[in-house]
Design a protein around this nucleic acid. Structure first.
Lengths: 140, 140
DNA sequence: TTTATTGCAAAACCTTTGCATGTAT
DNA sequence: ATACATGCAAAGGTTTTGCAATAAA
């Protein structure tokens, strides 16, 4: 399925800004990007796409399930391609790198805790903050 | 130890705004509060304390270890009394209630996952979003 | 041609800061 | 007396929105 078809299948018109932004995420140079990050890439490519459009498209892509949003402690929202595989994040507070992980046991315990208190969990966010292997090494 | 002493012991002068704000959290009417929440209570009490001061005091209290800050998905920071017991949060997306929980197994797995990848975790945030027991019940 | 989308500028929102004034020690 | 804290208003950073112009279907 082409990107054009993918967009149309979600009810979104296949416009140039949307195609460009989708490609930026697919190109994969940087997996987690803020609106500003995306806008900067567009500027470098001399695409005349406004920042407001970037925000609008990111929101639409999130609602369409194309991207997923994360709110880390930086105060800016970051987006990544939604590949349907749930995962949590580790954020390096030294270099800013974001890595992903999944632990079935943690997921299971979350459900158990929720059940024991009668909650119904729809989603969760979990992020570990610290130093990645590389930055921890450099500190020594 | 009085609140005055508690403040002084952290190097903060025992001013009226600081004492008032500390009391609001200790009164415990609402455990998790945004700057705006605190400001609203102060307004009701006719204390002439500015919003900027509320922000400054909350930041200072966090650095002093009196309060701890959480960034849930609302976009606003919330604060709660720091009683030294680490815990995670469950946020009800229907009524806004925040409950706390602690699961030793989850904490242990987080460390294991981090170790296996060479990360050094300094802190983490984890929040489950969904319906609390009461709101889940009302949906039926 | 009809309806959605865009760009721009302005506004909204939460939070921080400069500065003159006031207060705790 | 001195250093710190406050209030106000202004500015900061991120995100949203109104509207006329434009592009997709």
């Amino acid at each position: 399925m082409t990107n054009i078809d993918e967009l149309k299948s979600t009810g979104l018109k296949a416009t140039l800004p949307r195609l460009k932004i989708l490609e930026i995420f697919q190109k994969g140079t940087q997996r987690h990007m803020t609106a500003e990050d995306v806008f900067r890439v567009l500027l470098e490519e001399r695409s005349d796409i406004g920042l407001a459009t970037v925000y609008r498209v990111l929101t639409q892509f999130e609602q369409a399930g194309i991207l997923s949003r994360n709110n880390f402690e930086s105060g800016k929202a970051t987006y990544e391609l939604d590949e349907g595989k749930h995962h949590d994040h580790f954020v390096c507070t030294a270099c800013g790198k974001v890595e992903e992980f999944y632990d079935a046991e943690i997921e299971k315990r979350q459900q158990l805790v929720a059940q024991s208190k009668g909650w119904v969990v729809h989603e969760h966010s979990m992020a570990l903050y610290g130093h990645c292997a590389q930055c921890a090494q450099n500190k020594k």
